[in-house]
Design a protein around this nucleic acid. Structure first.
Lengths: 208, 208
DNA sequence: TGATAATTTGAACACCGTTCAATACATTTG
DNA sequence: CAAATGTATTGAACGGTGTTCAAATTATCA
């Protein structure tokens, strides 16, 4: 029965078409300006088609979220995998995260800010697959730092990972929402990275 | 010339009416659901009236932003003013900030997340009055910690204040956007405060 | 080829921010 | 006091939004 399979394949193709168009518009124009009608007209279908593949706009953006997460988080951790020293790798991860967050605002918003994606997620059971994975890599890295004698042994992996994550997340979001303008600095990015250096030197000394 | 003054007073009254209605709806239903039409109908005026007092929706929200900032930041710093020890006061400030951020999501979003307010601000010249003020209090507190011998003398006030701010801001925003759900904890709030304690113990040891 | 099933459409609904000619009201003038 | 002027407010209209669903189109099967 090759016919049913072809149908299924064609369905998936349209679904991908939608997702890619959505992604393109989203990256170029942001969440607010990515409308169902725009997506539909870009792929030369009627608006209704989207609702035959995604329950609503939230679910479409959740699909974008998942794809970005899958792709970008893997790339992030992969890019620092070669660094043998766990503390150096931890620092490099933070720097890459910050770099990525400010160079890819839309993606970052999709993954870590927008709540429409979380609303869609809450409707599902499979809570956090890739997200949990990323946190696990971070926690493993912290454990390595403990094992290597950089950090003392009694620190909690969850608490410490949140401590690190919230710091870089805070930097990215303050930057991306223009809140760093209160600081009277010419080069905001350099300023952030300097602040991050202070943070890491503090981590190095303070978790020992 | 009492007549012109009365007119002016009436104008201000309507402007305040708008602002208060906007605030009420915003607090109850969030940014997305606060529409010009809803605000107008609540105060029993037509939608057009709002545009006679505010250039657009962004400027209306900037007014809400300014009011929240003026009121809430003052209250925050005032609530810890009595603590003599600078390090203890710094910790208390962080805890109050976190507490406020998660107990008042809408207000927090208004002050530190929404970019519509920043877009409206960018159109104005008077950049950051209250915001800068808040950062200055924080920087002064850090300076006191240096003077009291808690922190070493060569740390940079700007970098360190950003370090502290971005941490608590990160915690609040991760919490408020449901991103802490990746952690398998029952009590997210307690978890955050524990993480913050680790952070402060790290600050204490790492900035000395 | 005709009947049936699956796919896709696009008009319709109830909203949104924003504008602006027209209306309603207040004040001043004759 | 009435008419004329000036000001404040209205609300319909414009071009958008997410979403639904009867209807039209297209593809498969007998």
């Amino acid at each position: 029965m090759g016919i049913a399979e072809r149908k299924e394949r064609e369905r998936e193709e349209v679904k991908d078409l939608i997702l890619n168009a959505a992604r393109e518009i989203f990256l170029a124009e942001g969440f607010e300006n990515t409308s169902i009608r725009k997506i539909a007209s870009r792929i030369e279908y009627s608006p209704g088609i989207i609702y035959l593949h995604y329950k609503d706009k939230n679910e479409l953006f959740l699909a974008l979220h998942d794809k970005a997460f899958e792709c970008k988080m893997k790339a992030l951790f992969y890019s620092v995998e070669h660094i043998a020293d766990p503390l150096e790798r931890l620092k490099a991860t933070g720097e890459s995260y910050l770099r990525y967050g400010i160079d890819n605002r839309q993606d970052y918003e999709l993954m870590f800010v927008l709540s429409c994606t979380m609303e869609a997620l809450a409707m599902k059971e499979e809570f956090w697959k890739d997200g949990a994975l990323a946190i696990n890599v971070l926690k493993a890295n912290i454990q390595e730092c403990i094992d290597a004698g950089y950090f003392r042994e009694d620190i909690d992996l969850d608490e410490t990972s949140l401590l690190l994550w919230s710091h870089v997340h805070g930097l990215v979001t303050l930057h991306n929402t223009e809140r760093l303008n209160i600081y009277d600095t010419d080069d905001k990015e350099a300023f952030m990275f300097r602040s991050m250096n202070v943070f890491f030197s503090m981590v190095e000394q303070g978790l020992r």
